[in-house]
Amino acid sequence: MSELHAPAREVLDQIAALPATSGRPLVICDVDEVVFHMIAHLEAFLAARDMGFLRHAYQLTGNIARKDSDTPIGQDEVRRMLLEFFTETSDKQSLVEGAAAALERLSADCEVIFLTNLPGSANKPARERLLAHHGMPYPVVTNSGPKGGAAAALSAGRGRPVVFIDDSPQNLKSVNLCLPETHLIQFVADDRFRAAIDPLPSVRLLTGDWQETTRHILTILDRS
């Protein structure tokens, strides 16, 4: 595994502290734009600061600019802004329709674990409380950067098949590289950003619908 995809020590420590595996199939699920809306909240956050997206593309650096400007803000400013955004928003993001019911249904047959890229260690408890408030008290592992190494570590010694649900093409590519037997689902709640995606060959399903996602995963389980 390349250094780019290797999980940080703090990620491995979180994984080591998880409850013992049940041996059931594993569903590794992202949070932002999959379970909770992110893009709509981020657009409101940016608009309040006279900024916005330049295009409906899955990137932040190079895609955020001040109003009446086509010049994107720099990477350092994007990072500072994201930390501020999550600090303000991690305890109040709105639920994607059908997410809680779908994961409850899947949890009857699968082990569900959230793997989320979340800046700021203090934001994890807020995210866990909000997930639990919406009926999703599944374990949360916070990560930074590509998720392939973390997904591989999560799946070690756990049940098969492994399903990975995420909105980010970069994370899906990373998991496919590090854990190629994984069933990849790209879930993007925002219709505009989903429509702009160039589907990856490794992705089994591109969707923004939790009912479709549930049916797809149950079909995978029936075949395993």
Rank of each mutant, 00 (worst) to 15 (best):
M1H: 10
S2C: 06
S2K: 10
E3T: 12
L4D: 10
R9I: 11
V11Y: 03
D13G: 01
D13Y: 02
Q14L: 03
I15P: 03
A17W: 04
L18A: 07
T21K: 02
T21F: 00
S22D: 11
S22P: 10
G23P: 04
G23A: 04
V27R: 02
I28R: 00
E33M: 04
V35F: 00
F36C: 09
H37C: 10
M38I: 05
M38E: 13
I39E: 15
I39D: 13
H41I: 07
E43M: 11
A44R: 15
A44S: 13
A47R: 15
A47W: 07
A47M: 06
R49K: 14
R49T: 13
D50A: 15
G52L: 07
L54W: 04
L54P: 09
H56V: 07
H56T: 09
A57C: 05
Y58K: 12
G62T: 04
G62Y: 02
I64A: 09
A65E: 05
K67I: 10
I73K: 07
G74R: 10
Q75H: 13
D76Q: 14
V78W: 05
V78A: 09
M81Q: 07
F86C: 03
T89G: 04
T89F: 10
Q93Y: 01
L95S: 08
V96T: 09
G98P: 12
A102P: 08
L103C: 11
E104L: 09
R105H: 09
L106D: 01
S107H: 06
A108D: 08
C110W: 09
E111F: 00
F114E: 04
F114R: 08
F114L: 10
L115K: 00
L115I: 00
L118R: 10
L118Y: 00
L118C: 05
S121A: 15
A122L: 01
N123L: 03
L130N: 01
A132W: 01
H134E: 09
P139N: 05
V141K: 07
N143D: 02
S144G: 08
S144P: 03
P146Y: 01
K147L: 00
G148L: 02
G149D: 05
A151R: 02
A151S: 13
A153F: 09
A153G: 11
L154D: 06
L154F: 01
S155I: 06
A156E: 14
R158I: 02
G159V: 10
R160S: 15
R160E: 15
P161K: 11
P161Y: 11
V163L: 14
F164W: 03
I165T: 11
D166G: 12
S168V: 03
Q170Y: 11
N171C: 08
L172W: 08
L172A: 04
K173T: 14
N176A: 14
N176T: 08
L179T: 11
E181F: 03
E181G: 12
A189K: 13
A196Q: 12
I197T: 12
I197L: 15
L205I: 13
T207I: 13
D209N: 15
W210Y: 04
Q211I: 07
Q211H: 12
T213W: 01
H216D: 14
I217K: 02
D222R: 14
S224F: 05
S224M: 07
